[in-house]
Structure formats: structure tokens, C-alpha cells
Design a protein around this nucleic acid. Structure first.
Lengths: 358, 358
DNA sequence: CTGAAAGCGCTTACAG
DNA sequence: CTGAAAGCGCTTACAG
């Protein structure tokens, strides 16, 4: 067998630069030969298999370290019938959310042999399920993490199960088995926002909620109502308007709300984007935040702490959530810090809320 | 050979759910058998190899379509000695930038068999080069795209060349062979900003530049100076201060600038983040934008069109840049729309600039 | 224009 | 505790 150390120059495939001479990559066979064992035994130590004699294991580990060997992911994947790819599949439009979650997952993947593959998608595309399905079948993923709102899609979850692909869904409600979920207790943060406004003395309060199709928008509304009711307050039907989680819809909704004869003294927006729209609407009709109108957001995006006045909002530790999700995939249910699979967003009080003027 | 259509139940590897029955995946062998040819011939049509008889090709293509067959990426990767992974390696901290570029690359990868793997990194980490090097050696990437400032690191580029990995560097200056570069003509946008301010009548103008270590910060400064000089204006040394491309540094620099006896009437910030810091500094000392001080940013992040007053800034089509980079990798130099490998950012005039008050 | 053989670098299933 | 054989699903190198 011609497993010589030197490859002839014409082994170049044409994909590379002519004359580029790859240093011959060391393989499991080389390690095995040097250790005087079979490659199967080397494979065992690579995969932390149960039973290898300590001395053999040590010798092999030393060799692996000395030659800086690490097994080829492609070959492993082929033999394992499973790639070393973790996919993040998402439709969330917020860059900050996406980037933070990617970081969190990556934090958890560091040191594992997995890489993070990203897959943004559009749930409204006609071929949405076909695309995702093809992707899942093809890649034989090591795992997938699904933030909202894809996480809320039971069909996707089923495709994943069908393909035998582990996954973690991130959502504000329990919509799958616990070991496949990270629960974000958004109702809690929303309730805090309600209490904060109630304590400041607000009585006429409005809410711009997110779309019907997002579970989070229900949870935020529910939590907010719960918090208010502790103070004997409640949201009247026409003090709840539907926004689309965007700047523009936040603006439009606020215009409606602020034009009412009995104008609210505080508005809780379903997310920061919409809260910024409220700022704009207030400005336009000469209202000052927070003197004339208090505003609370949700998410704590970077804009919240850069705009004037700084926005009071509910902070979700997205990166931590991503980390937990990644750990759950890489280490299994016991991996995620003692089985912690829920996260509680907290209110951050800044400048956009004050006692009502009247 | 027991390549039966039915796999026994105990073929389950333990990685999956017990009893989970994977539908037997169709392989190149199945297609070959059904087409009555060798698998090598099927391989040829998969890879668009030159010479396959038209009728044979058609028959195979029909079969592929009928059975919705697509070759296993892991197996292909192993045989090709090259994975189907395109990596985006970056240290840019701006979420909007990152997300847009990811989208652009993904746009270009759609339809290819490549997936996008992301690799954020910290150039200041002690093991920075080791990490990247290991990553590159291990993954046998199909290609890599490097936005600033990793793109400016010649050592990384060399590691990539060494590993025979195609790459595209995105930068404001020509720092590699043309087919390995997307050039962003940032000096052009900065010059436009200068002309805009000069035409408004500003004479006392300051610039908060980015860090020495970013090529872009030099280019933006240079372009700005060029634009000013067309009007016989120039930046005095102490009207140029060093920021760090962050909100905080923008604020600090603006405080210095605005405290000067001869206060500037306009400030060109090296990016939007710093421009927001200028807003804050101005607000603090009772200055109104743009009545008392005009502000221009660079990047056109989403905040620019959400904050009051809307920020005049230079828009870079990041997603387009990512698309070009992706195309360059997937289709080679001729792939990127007729060899277009440069992008020109343009000024977007909004509300933060006006004629000086004096 | 097409195929048989060998191989990519690992792991599984089975023995011992 | 360890190994020889077969195989994962493709492609390369070589023939014809």
C-alpha cells in the first residue's frame, strides 16, 4: 500500500493552486502504527469508549497530542451517519437577537467537534417546508436549535424527529418535551413592567401587542395583565392594539392610541422596535417621554441604551439562552447546567418611565 | 450484498429514538442500478462532467428527479477531500453588518450544495491564530469569506492559501489579488459626505475617526479630506480625534470637540455608532442637531433611520457585498456578475445635517 | 462515452 | 481489553 509520506506533485486535484503541496495530513492509521495498536483502538480513545487499557490509552493520547492529530470530521460523519453540524434555523428578523443567539450557541459548541451552520428562512415562502425538509434530510445534522417563531412550528419539530435529529426549541410556552425545550418566562418580565407602571401611579395604560402568530406576544400580554391585576388595574379591550413587532407598526399604533380623547399616560410596547415607533409618534404631536407619556419596551436591544431618553425595557439574556440550547445538544439533558432549561427576563428601568403628570 | 430495501429494526444506532425507523436513503448505487449504468456514470452527471451520452444523461437525470436523490455531502466531501462548507470568519462587532453579510453570502450559496458556517473571533485573543488555523486545517473548507478587519490580516490569508482554501477578502483597499477581493470604495462615500457639508456652508468641520488598526478608518478619513479639499477646505490636526468605532468613544470624542473654544459646526463620525455618541454629547450641553451642530455617520445601520433626528450617513450595501463574495467562491471569478468586484457606498441625506447657524 | 478497482478516513458489527 | 473485516457513499486514477 502506497501510504508514503510524500505525495507526488501531480496529486493536485485542480481545485487548488498548481504546485501547491499540501503537507500530508496525519491519519488515524499513522497514530495506530506508531502506537503499535489497531486503528480501532485509536478510534476508541478518540471516542472515549469504555474499555481501553490505561497505559495504551495514555500512549495513544500522547501521540495524538504530539502530532496534533484530530480526526477528519468528514470521515467521521460518513461512518457515524451523522454530521458534526449544528444548525440554527430561524426567521426572527432582529439582528441583535440573531447575533447574540449565534454567539451563545457557539460558546456551547467550543471544544466540541461541532460547527454552527445557519439557516435563516421565511415561514411564508411557498416552499418553506420543502426547503427545510431537504436541508434536514441532506445534512444529517448533529442537532438543531429553533428560536421563535420557527420554534413554534410543530411540523418542523416533527420533521426533525422523523429524521432522527436532536433539536431544542426556544419558546415562551411549554410546547414540547422538557429536554427539547428552553423556556423563556416572558410573562414574568411583562408582569414586572406592569408593576413598575402601576407603582409609578399610572392608571390609564395601553399595550401595543405583537402579532397573533407569535406565542411571545400572547405571553407578554398575559404577563402584563397579570401584573396589572395585582394592583386592581386592567387593560380595556381598546387599549390593546395589534402591532407587527416593527418600528412602523409601533408608530402607527401609537398614533391611534395617542389620538384618543382619554389619552393613556403609559404605553407598554411588545418589543423595543415598536417602542421606538412610540417615541416617534409622541414627538410628532409634541409629547415628551416620559413627562407626558411613559414608554416600556421588551428585548433590551442596543438601541434601547443609545436613544434619548434611554428606554425602560425587559431584558432577555439571549446569549445565555443560546448557550443553554447548545449545551443541551452537545451534552444532552444533564449537560445544561444542572438541567436548567428556563430563563427569566427581567425589567431594566431607565429613563422612559416616570410618574404621570396629572 | 445485502442492499435490501428494508433495513432490520435493530439497525438503529442508539443515537436515535428506539424504534425510529429511518426510511432507507437512496444512494448513487440505487440510481446506477435502476439506470443500468455504473455508479461512476451517475457520478459524472451529478458533477456535470464533460462527456456522458445525452440519452444516458437524460435517463439518469429523470431518475434522480423521480427519487428526489441528492448525493450525501459527507461522502462527497470525503472523496473530494474538501467539504461543502463556506465559512464566514469575522470580528466585526456590528450585528447589523454581520447579519446582512450572512444573508448576502447565503443568497449566493442557495442552489449550490454549500452550507454557511460562521466563525466569529477575537483578533486579540492569545490563541487567535491557533484557533483559526486549527479550524481551517480541520474543516477543509470549500471557501472562506473575510470581512474587515480579519480581511486585513495577511497571516490569515496565508494560512488559507497554505491549506489550499479559496477565500475572498472584503476591504477598502486592494490588499490581495483581484479575484480574491471585494473592494469597498469607502473613500468615495466619505468624500460625498464632505461635499455635502461643504455645500451647506460648513467651514469648521471635525472628524471622529476609527481606530488606527482598521484600514477603513484611514480610507474614510482620506476620502473625507479629498472631498473637503475640492472646496478649498481641510481638516486641522486637532479636528481629527481617534475613536474606537463604539458609542462610548463617539460620545467622549464629541465632548472634547464640542468643548473647544471654536466649536465645529459639523462632525463627521467614522461610523453610525459614534455618531449616536455625538448626539448624546450634544444633547448634554444643550446643543440641537442639526440647528447647532450637523452630524454625519457611516454605515447606515437601522438606528440611523429610527433615531431623532434621522441620521445623514453613508450607506454600504452589505448584503450585496456578501452576495458577491459568495458568488466569487461558488462560481469562480467569472461568476460574480461580470467580474464586478467592487462596491461603492453612497451618501444618504436625512435630517441631521443643515446649514450652520452663524 | 463508460466501467472496475481502489481509496477518502473513519466507525460498526462481530469475534476473541 | 483488542483486532480484522466490512462498510459509510461518494470520487479518483486508470483503462478501454
Amino acid at each position: 500500500m502506497a501510504s508514503s509520506d510524500e505525495k507526488p506533485d501531480d496529486s493536485d486535484t485542480g481545485l487548488g493552486r498548481p504546485g501547491a503541496r499540501r503537507k500530508p495530513k496525519i491519519t488515524i492509521n499513522d497514530i495506530a502504527r506508531m502506537a503499535g495498536v489497531s486503528k480501532k483502538t485509536v478510534s476508541r480513545v478518540i471516542n472515549d469508549a469504555a474499555t481501553v487499557k490505561a497505559s495504551t490509552r495514555d500512549k495513544i493520547k500522547a501521540l495524538i497530542k504530539e502530532y496534533d492529530f484530530s480526526p477528519d470530521p468528514q470521515a467521521r460523519a460518513l461512518a457515524f451517519r451523522r454530521s458534526f453540524l449544528v444548525a440554527m434555523i430561524y426567521d426572527n428578523p432582529s439582528p441583535q437577537y440573531i447575533v447574540n443567539m449565534q454567539r451563545g450557541i457557539l460558546d456551547a459548541l467550543a471544544g466540541s467537534s461541532c460547527q454552527l451552520v445557519i439557516r435563516p428562512c421565511d415561514r411564508n415562502a411557498p416552499d418553506f417546508y420543502d426547503m427545510i425538509s431537504e436541508f434536514i434530510e441532506q445534512q444529517r445534522l448533529f442537532g438543531a436549535v429553533l428560536p421563535p417563531s420557527v420554534s413554534e412550528d410543530d411540523h418542523i419539530a416533527e420533521m426533525l424527529r422523523e429524521a432522527d435529529c436532536p433539536y431544542v426549541r426556544i419558546a415562551s410556552v411549554e410546547l414540547d418535551e422538557p429536554h427539547r425545550m428552553i423556556r423563556t418566562r416572558e410573562a414574568h418580565g411583562a408582569a414586572e413592567a406592569a408593576r413598575h407602571l402601576a407603582r409609578l401611579g399610572h392608571r390609564r395604560i395601553a399595550h401595543i401587542r405583537g402579532p397573533e402568530s407569535f406565542r411571545s406576544s400572547h405571553e407578554r400580554l398575559r404577563g402584563f395583565q397579570d401584573g396589572l391585576s395585582e394592583f386592581g388595574l386592567h387593560l380595556k379591550d381598546d387599549d390593546i392594539v395589534f402591532g407587527g413587532y416593527t418600528y412602523e407598526t409601533g408608530y402607527e399604533c401609537a398614533r391611534l392610541l395617542l389620538a384618543k380623547p382619554e389619552r393613556p399616560t403609559a404605553i407598554f410596547a411588545g418589543n423595543d422596535e415598536m417602542a421606538l415607533g412610540v417615541y416617534k409618534a409622541a414627538r410628532e404631536i409634541g409629547l415628551t417621554v416620559p413627562a407626558d407619556i411613559s414608554v416600556v419596551g421588551f428585548d433590551d436591544t442596543p438601541i434601547a441604551s443609545r436613544i434619548a431618553p434611554y428606554l425602560t425595557t425587559v431584558h432577555s439574556p439571549i446569549r445565555d439562552i443560546g448557550y443553554l440550547a447548545g449545551k443541551l445538544l452537545v451534552e444532552g439533558p444533564k449537560g445544561a447546567k444542572g438541567g436548567l432549561t428556563s430563563i427569566t427576563p427581567e425589567l431594566v428601568v431607565r429613563e422612559s418611565t416616570a410618574a404621570p403628570a396629572f
